[in-house]
Design a protein around this nucleic acid. Sequence first.
DNA 1: ACGATAACTGACCGATCGGTCAGCGGCTGT
DNA 2: ACAGCCGCTGACCGATCGGTCAGTTATCGT
Lengths: 190, 190
Amino acid sequence: MSTSAEDLRAIALAEFATAGYAATSLHRIADLAGLSKSSVLYHYASKETLLEATVAPAIHRMEEILGALEASALTPAGRAAFLSEFVDFILQYRREVNMFINQGQSLVDVPVIDEANAIVHRLADFFAANTASIEEKMRFGIALGGAAYMLCSPESMAFDADQVDEARAALLKILTELLAPVTAPVAIGE
Amino acid sequence: MSTSAEDLRAIALAEFATAGYAATSLHRIADLAGLSKSSVLYHYASKETLLEATVAPAIHRMEEILGALEASALTPAGRAAFLSEFVDFILQYRREVNMFINQGQSLVDVPVIDEANAIVHRLADFFAANTASIEEKMRFGIALGGAAYMLCSPESMAFDADQVDEARAALLKILTELLAPVTAPVAIGE
DNA sequence: ACGATAACTGACCGATCGGTCAGCGGCTGT
DNA sequence: ACAGCCGCTGACCGATCGGTCAGTTATCGT
């Protein structure tokens, strides 16, 4: 009852995000789950399959959010809604987001990771659609990479439960501030 | 003459930063250098020694900058000078910084990486000395992690030579903006 | 009572890992 | 001419990697 595929997924996610995909062995995942390596490979055909199962939910959710953004791109309200949803997304899938950002480059040719990289690229394209000055590219990159780093950095990893709302508000404020020149419906030129 | 220890250091740095330390084999470094694995281990006693040589210059430079910051902490000019030096540091040692940020957690118990982590911690402590609200912690983390991600992200990796000044100016502006509530000599409370 | 299926395991496989070692050719000082 | 060092190499080592497979146990439908 206890040791299920879902448990393995959660354990693998934590290990992949903190130690890295390449540095995490199936043996270690099995140990943490109290199983043998063979049992891990019974639930997931391969290490790569386990990785896919680990990150798939976050990818699908991000696709939803990105689709909504692209659909309502013209309205300022749509962009504001995106930022709010995006912050919730980062908070909910913090470990997955951290994996994409930190290991996305090294895990290319893994199909599901390529998919995640493509989404990041779509998001970047959206924000760089009208103008692509270096500063605005950099604002976007700092917002994305910075948020990902923050939420998985060892010191900031542990939020008290009563601080999560404050963290959410602070993150939303900072990201809005960072992306203001880009998300502003008018007066983009500097 | 051509294949020297310094060449190996540069090759290893590029590979460690993009593919990750654990995922980079000595064999691959040797191949890229046109040498055998044994030759790599002739120049560097072990893979870990190579890692240390790879990141040591960046660590020493960061210690200098951090020391100067702590010495001149009281003066607004000192803090402004730090930000400028810090931006130059990030631009010059972009790959090393990216390694610290992305792989610092997974490479603990490697002494030289622990040293780097300690420096990041010292830096964080400095900015969190007077006040440690979640928002300000988050501003610091986003500035640091975001800058590191930006400068090694695949799309932004290639700056045109004539754009590097613009990139520097943009980075300095954004970081100043991000850390403004913290670096402001007065009126820190919110 | 009995087959089917699910969950799991240890033994084993080839490949690759970091690292050791004896020895190679070439250059230099004497 | 010869000793010594430097850069380098292939062969080899034990450990670990991801993955396969035959087999065990337990639960469930009939």
